[in-house]
Amino acid sequence: MKQYGYCKDAAALAAVSGGVMLRSDDRLKDSVVSRASLQKLLLSPEADIGLEKQFENTQTQLWINLFRQCAEHEVVVRLPDMLFDCLLPQNDAEFACIAEMFQCPEEALRGEAERLTMCHQLCCCQEYHFPPQYLRLFELQIRSIMQGAERGGLHKIALLLPYSGNVDEVRMLCGLTDGIAAEFLITCQLGIEVSTPRAACETREYAGLMDFLVFNTEALTQKMYGIPADGAEDAVEYYMQRGVFEQSPFCSFDETGLGTLLLLAIERARAIPARIRIGMMGKPVCEPVGQAFCRENKVDMLFT
């Protein structure tokens, strides 16, 4: 079982001895110009080819600089799973920065942000990854990653796609990614993050499309208990004090619920002739019971 350590930046690479997991949304925060450019693209009703190219070039250079430090590691890049949340301006300072940088009215930016937020809520997109209006931004990120990997000296790279809703949508994202990756001279493997019980029930279908599957055990635990990990400390503590929980379900491996679901999902994924790699991430599989589960079921990849 190969371990992959999460690295936010080049400085963290020194502490990693195995594989490396990088998050593409970290690169969105590396540069004020890059983040502002992407936010302006999101808030612009009309296409802006020049700004798209500027964003792509800035992102590519950030990836080149990082990948040059990763030559000794196997690299997995995780794509953002909630683009809507991480792209919209988060405060007054960001709105003012975009308005000043691109010489556009701040009121218009705020109005478009409010419109997008309303549409997002009406379409029930809070838990829906990659709504259609973000596909172009998805393509720009994939292209900058692939360019950065090739020019940064990598010979192969793995991309971890977030779960998007159903197999047909995943097939569409795979087609977009494969089409871009084919333009470059490095090997690109595709994986998908399994973060909902429904996705776990469709692993046989995903196994025919992907090179590897990664089960997000924290996200699956949240869905199975119906309790969000963020902000649920008081509720979990209340249940633990009264003996309902022996320990926090987000820091322990639930063999009855999570374990049963994972066994079913792994069995279905391995039912097809092609050998697919199985990965796990999250606190539940980093404690002893979870580690034992991974060894017993011959998990290939562990993300810590």
Rank of each mutant, 00 (worst) to 15 (best):
L22W: 01
Q147T: 08
G191K: 06
Y225R: 05
Q121G: 08
P284R: 10
I272V: 12
V20F: 12
V289K: 03
Y134Q: 11
F130G: 04
C174H: 12
A158H: 04
Y238C: 05
A158N: 03
L302C: 10
E56T: 11
E183A: 02
A229C: 13
M1P: 08
G282I: 15
E218R: 03
L220M: 04
M301V: 09
G148D: 10
D92V: 14
L51D: 00
A265F: 14
T203V: 07
D92K: 13
Q222K: 02
C188W: 14
Q247I: 00
Q241W: 01
C201N: 01
D81C: 07
K2A: 07
T177Y: 15
F303W: 03
V167L: 05
A12H: 03
G5P: 04
V77T: 06
R171N: 11
P105T: 01
G208H: 02
I278M: 14
P80S: 08
K29A: 09
G152S: 05
L109E: 14
F293A: 04
T304N: 11
E100P: 03
V75Y: 07
Y128E: 13
R151M: 15
Q133G: 04
I276P: 06
G259W: 15
N91Y: 06
Y239Q: 01
A274F: 03
V32K: 02
T117D: 14
P284M: 10
Q69L: 15
D300Q: 06
R78M: 09
E255D: 14
L88R: 02
F102P: 01
Y225V: 01
F215V: 13
E205H: 11
G153F: 15
A182L: 06
E46A: 13
I186K: 11
G19N: 05
I98N: 02
G5T: 10
F293T: 02
N91V: 04
T203Q: 08
F130I: 15
T221K: 01
L51N: 03
A235P: 00
E202Q: 14
L13K: 06
P131E: 05
F130Y: 15
H155D: 14
L51I: 04
C97E: 13
K53I: 08
E255V: 01
L261A: 06
L42C: 00
I192D: 01
C86G: 09
P249I: 00
L154G: 07
M82V: 06
G179K: 15
H73Y: 15
C125L: 15
L122Q: 06
N57G: 14
E52Y: 04
D25P: 02
M118H: 13
E107D: 09
T58V: 13
T221A: 03
P162N: 10
S17Y: 10
A93I: 11
L209P: 08
F184M: 05
G50H: 04
E107Q: 12
E52D: 03
